[in-house]
Each structure stands twice: as structure tokens, then as C-alpha cells.
């Protein structure tokens, strides 16, 4: 089962510079595990220590944000396209305060 995954610039150090790679899995979680076996460390940039998807990474299956598809449980089918983008966010507010206010993970994407 082949799924094309588009990798953002900041994570291409894990894929040897490749803009897109192929992976397999019937859920997003399985796909990320499969990718991590080939591109070690990639999964850790997308998943928090608590095992959830990083708040400031956007992952899309075809044209949908996976947050609306069950997050890591999102179902995947052969031929799907997965796109990973670093969320673009920031602002004047202190980081911890912003995270607390928004109820989000405080682990930054770096």
C-alpha cells in the first residue's frame, strides 16, 4: 500500500533532502511508524511525548486536515496523498502563557 508523503523543508534533513517519500499504513499512526523505520527521528518531530500529534504541525490527508479525520487514527487508503506542513504561528504573547491559554502542548516544534 503506497502513500505519497510530502515533506516540508524543515524535516528534509530526515529524508536525505527528498521533498516527497512513500510510506505504508492503514492509519496515520501506522504510516508515521513505517516512515520512522526508514527515516529515523521523523516521527518524534510530529508526535509529542504524550503520544499525541504536535499542535503546531499540520498534517493533511488529500485535502483534509487530519484533526477533522480522527488525528492519528485517520484512515488511509492506497493512493492517498499526505502533506506535512509546519504550522505558521507566533506572536507577541509569551509562549507558556499562550500555550496555557489555548490549552495546547507546550512542546515546541523545532
Amino acid at each position: 500500500m503506497a502513500i505519497e508523503v510530502r515533506i516540508p523543508t524543515i524535516l528534509r534533513t530526515y529524508t536525505g533532502g527528498a521533498k516527497s517519500v512513500e510510506g505504508a499504513g492503514d492509519t496515520l499512526s501506522a504510516l508515521l511508524t513505517d516512515l520512522d523505520s526508514k527515516y529515523s527521528g521523523l516521527r518524534g518531530r510530529l508526535i509529542t511525548e504524550q503520544g499525541g500529534l504536535h499542535r503546531f504541525v499540520n498534517i493533511y490527508v488529500n485535502d483534509e486536515d487530519v484533526r477533522f479525520l480522527g488525528s492519528l487514527d485517520a484512515k488511509l487508503n492506497d493512493g492517498d496523498n499526505v502533506t506535512i506542513l509546519p504550522a505558521v504561528a507566533g506572536g507577541a504573547f509569551g509562549f507558556a502563557a499562550a500555550a496555557a491559554m489555548l490549552g495546547r502542548s507546550t512542546a515546541p516544534v523545532r
Binding site: 516540508p8 523543508t9 524543515i10 503546531f56 506542513l85 509546519p86 504550522a87 505558521v88 504561528a89 507566533g90 506572536g91 507577541a92 504573547f93 509569551g94 509562549f95 499562550a98 515546541p108 516544534v109 523545532r110
Partner: peptide, 20 residues
Amino acid sequence: HTATEAYPSRTDVSFAGEPG
């Protein structure tokens, strides 16, 4: 930034995902 200087906050640095 609408009330502070034009310098990246810790938030900006944490979330900056486009190195280029």
C-alpha cells in the same frame, strides 16, 4: 506586533518552521 517592539518573542522562535 501591535503593542510591543518588532522583535521575535519566545513564541515566534519556538514555532518558526521555515529556516529559509
